[in-house]
């Protein structure tokens, strides 16, 4: 279960999100959506413990973030590292097997096998010996995803994993995420595309610097909520609602918060 209580956070003197309050039971596939600048990434960074909130608190599995960090895995945006770095794809994925107090210079055989397994899961096995700079944007994102999967954490957090990614990579990423969810694990993902959001997630957090709504997608993904968040073109939104009505997905399987 993730509980966000009275959260206000931001950077320096600039407040990026105000008074966020919600709780969602795990396992869940949670989408954080909202227009640009609505504080989606800020919320994710605060959940990760990367950003200290001004006020309020977040707890996961009933504990403060600092105590459950090892149960989280994070897929950052791909522009957050130097892709010219002299390192091979396999070495990046192996970092997912990295444990803070492991001494010695080598990864164990089982770590190597796990890394190879997850590299295969994202369909990148044949690239394992390439230098990372030789990959396309979508392939880079898949390598980052494999690294996070290799941590075998309970909650996977992703920041717009489909941004700037080709269609093939995008499909692969979504199918890996759906497998992950099927293992009873949870995913929290920042997402900008409303059209896919309507079918992808089972829970939504809809943001507009303040919280618009949070909970099961059926309750959140409504015309009035979306209008509050985006304030624009109603016809496009209502098309989407209609689409959502035709694909209810597996919503009823999940307990309501």
């Amino acid at each position: 279960m993730i509980e966000v209580h009275n959260l206000t956070a931001g950077y320096g003197k600039r407040t990026a999100l105000w008074n966020i309050d919600f709780s969602i039971h795990f396992p869940a596939f949670i989408g954080i959506i909202g227009p640009n600048g609505s504080g989606k990434s800020t919320l994710l960074k605060t959940i990760l413990g990367e950003l200290i909130p001004f006020t309020g608190s977040i707890s996961l599995f009933g504990k403060p973030i600092s105590e459950v960090k090892h149960r989280l895995a994070y897929v950052p945006q791909i522009n957050s590292v130097d892709w010219n770095f002299p390192i091979r794809v396999m070495d990046v994925v192996l970092m997912g097997r990295f444990r803070p107090n492991s001494w010695g210079p080598f990864y164990s055989k089982s770590d190597r096998e796990k890394a190879a397994f997850y590299l295969n899961a994202v369909g990148m096995s044949e690239f394992s010996k390439r230098q990372i700079g030789e990959l396309s944007g979508g392939q880079r994102q898949r390598v980052f995803l494999a690294r996070a999967l290799a941590r075998e954490a309970d909650v996977l957090l992703l920041d717009e994993p489909l941004a700037g990614v080709d269609a093939g990579s995008g499909e692969r990423i979504l199918s890996v995420l759906s497998d992950y969810q099927q293992q009873g694990r949870s995913i929290v993902m920042v997402h900008h595309d409303l059209l896919t959001a309507s079918t992808l997630f089972d829970h939504l957090v809809l943001m507009q610097t303040r919280l618009v709504a949070a909970g099961p997608i059926q309750q959140v993904f409504t015309l009035s909520n979306l209008q509050t968040a985006y304030g624009t073109d109603v016809s496009i939104l209502s098309d989407m609602i209609h689409k959502l009505g035709q694909t209810p997905g597996n919503l009823s399987d999940h307990p309501k918060p």
Partner: peptide, 24 residues
């Protein structure tokens, strides 16, 4: 230092943020 902290150093050099998440 290199022998015992090689993995940590490599992770840090490539991606300090990830290093932090992994608990270092």
């Amino acid at each position: 230092f290199l022998f015992f902290r090689w993995k940590q150093l490599k992770t840090w050099a490539f991606d300090a943020e990830f290093c932090r998440h992994a608990g270092i």
